[in-house]
Design a protein around this nucleic acid. Structure first.
Lengths: 206, 206
DNA sequence: TTAAGATCATTGGTCAGACCACTACGCTGT
DNA sequence: ACAGCGTAGTGGTCTGACCAATGATCTTAA
């Protein structure tokens, strides 16, 4: 039996197998996964166990199932994940704090990254865009993180953003003007002391 | 039928019901949920559907099941969540550069965090430990990130570390002494200009 | 010939029932 | 009073059955 090898629950093993399979065959979003019955047969497990694995991954928004068609890898989106989590997390203050902290630091990291990666002209273009456009903080940072050109940070941030917005933090958010000012400052200073500016930002929010 | 009301899949409806139940009865981590069979009966659904809902919530780390005992609400921790997400997200991402960059920035973030969170005594204790102990870079940062007390960063870093080590980057890693020096510097400076030191670190690796 | 309709295999969605393994709890006999 | 055992309850898994939706194939009529 599958569980006998590892002691893990079967559905967890199946999740792992799927991950390996996806990696091995280099499957991308939109690609089709084997049917439940086929997987059940190939892995020598019950179809119900396969379904448990699929349902878990589906709730995470990692796969998508279409009746009569099959199961497909999905281009990850927060989805219902956030609602579900927020309900369960609500009382965990530490988790909320971690989320806020992590989101904040990633944002600053990306801010720093674009300072490193982009040319002055590109930064200027962004600055002009930011000054002439109306946007929310989320939109602002989405742009930032896109420019930072780090896919991992982008994905992480999207998740964290959804978490963050589903929680009821006090309205202590920074305004876009503060960030713009930060950019200007960073842009003009020879030494990229973003953490100094960071500390300044901290003062604004605290 | 349950799904007829919303058109949603049964297991999603069950997840929703559970959320309502938890909210209504003010259940907290550690509390026991109804058994699979009881839920199956109360909600007029098959036990397998209840299990699909439970498995999904379990993969999210929101509940915990103990054979022979029951299903319990869990004190939420990132756990497998970040792990599973990261794996699926990384699969379509080939950029070794992103992995390296992200890992590096998270490490620096955590370094910065302990500067903020910990007392001088605690930092001194860590510094002494670091000077008197032999450790690898990974062990060093594991300690750092533990001290940073941010569970999300911890999980992310663990994944990134595994990926990083599985890739064949040139041996351009920083040595522990550099980091220790950094800590000393940070500790003594009034202004926490970690990014300045960060830049210095970048020079070391580039 | 072609387009509309019917048919059928495939696939996911759900349920019911059967075992197994493990745990807690109460009963029993000493 | 206590140690031991057995039973009920619970999760873990598998099997088989049926329903519902989809898509490809075949059939038929214009």
């Amino acid at each position: 039996m599958l569980s006998a090898q590892t002691g893990s629950k079967v559905y967890v093993v199946i999740v792992k197998k799927l991950r390996e399979m996806i990696a091995a065959e280099n499957l991308k979003p939109g690609d089709k996964l084997p049917s439940e019955r086929e997987l059940s047969e190939r892995l020598k497990v019950g179809r119900s166990s396969v379904r448990e694995a699929f349902r878990a991954l589906e709730l995470l928004g990692l796969i998508e199932t279409r009746r009569g068609e099959g199961t497909f890898i999905r281009d990850f989106k927060g989805h219902q994940l956030v609602q579900v989590l927020s309900t369960f997390i609500l009382q965990d203050e530490k988790a909320k704090k971690d989320i806020k902290e992590t989101k904040f630091l990633i944002e600053l990291d990306c801010l720093w990254l674009i300072m490193q990666k982009k040319t002055d002209d590109e930064l200027l273009a962004f600055k002009n865009w930011a000054e002439q456009t109306t946007f929310t903080d989320d939109e602002f940072f989405y742009k930032i993180i896109l420019l930072a050109d780090n896919h991992l940070f982008l994905r992480m941030w999207e998740i964290l953003k959804d978490y963050y917005n589903s929680l009821d933090f006090p309205a202590e958010e920074l305004q876009k003007h503060d960030y713009l000012h930060l950019i200007e400052e960073l842009q003009t200073k020879e030494e990229m002391r973003i953490r100094g500016a960071y500390k300044k930002l901290r003062k604004l929010v605290e």
